[in-house]
C-alpha cells in the first residue's frame, strides 16, 4: 500500500479555554493572564510549543494549552477579568483536535475546506468547515492543526483519512 498523503493524528491532552470579553478594554489583562500577546484579527499567537492564543471573533479568544495547566489558567483569567463583563469557560472536553502533517498535508485540507490556503498567513487562524462540520485551522510545523467538535471526532478522522488516500495528491497529472 502506498503511503497516505499526510499523517492524521488525534491530539489529546490539550486544554482549551474560551474567553469572551471586550478585547479593546480587557486585552492587556488577558494577555498577562494568558502569558501571550492578544492576537490580531484571524491570527493565532503561540509561544513556540506549549500555549497558543487564537482570535475566534471580535469578542472571543481561544487559549490552547496543556491540559494540566487549564485549571490554573481558568482561575488566573477569571481573576484577571474580575469586574469586567467577560466570560471565561473551559471548553477542553468539547473539542476534537487533529494534526495533519506530511508532504501533502495541504492537499488533504484543500479537499475538505473551502479555504484559500495560499492566502492563509503563517500565523493565520481560519474558522470554516471541513466537509459538513465546523472546524478551525492553523499551521503547525509540517502541516496543520484542525479543531472540531468532540461529537464528530470519528467523522473528522474518517474524512481526513479519506482525503489522505494514497496517490490522490492534487498536483496536475
Amino acid at each position: 500500500m502506498a503511503e497516505a498523503l499526510a499523517h492524521i493524528a488525534r491530539v489529546t491532552g490539550l486544554g482549551m479555554v474560551s474567553i469572551r470579553a471586550d478585547l479593546q478594554r480587557a486585552g492587556d489583562a488577558i494577555a498577562e493572564a494568558a502569558g501571550l500577546a492578544v492576537p490580531g484579527m484571524t491570527r493565532i499567537v503561540t509561544d513556540g510549543s506549549r500555549r497558543a492564543l487564537g482570535w475566534m471573533s471580535p469578542d472571543e479568544l481561544l487559549l490552547v494549552l496543556p491540559a494540566a495547566e487549564r485549571a490554573e489558567a481558568l482561575a488566573t483569567l477569571t481573576d484577571a477579568l474580575a469586574g469586567e463583563h467577560a466570560l471565561v469557560v473551559d471548553v477542553s472536553d468539547a473539542r476534537a483536535v487533529f494534526d495533519v502533517t506530511g508532504r501533502h498535508a495541504d492537499d488533504v485540507i484543500r479537499k475538505l475546506m473551502p479555504v484559500d490556503l495560499d492566502e492563509l498567513p503563517p500565523d493565520g487562524l481560519r474558522r470554516s468547515r471541513a466537509a459538513q462540520t465546523a472546524a478551525a485551522l492553523w499551521r503547525i510545523p509540517g502541516g496543520f492543526r484542525l479543531i472540531g467538535f468532540r461529537s464528530t471526532a470519528d467523522y473528522l478522522r474518517m474524512i481526513l483519512e479519506n482525503a489522505a488516500f494514497p496517490r490522490s495528491q492534487l498536483a496536475a497529472r
Binding site: 469572551r20 463583563h85 468539547a94 473539542r95
Partner: peptide, 10 residues
C-alpha cells in the same frame, strides 16, 4: 451586556 457560549459538547 450579555455573553453566551454553547457548551453542549463540554
Amino acid at each position: 451586556q450579555v455573553y453566551t457560549a454553547n457548551l453542549t459538547e463540554q
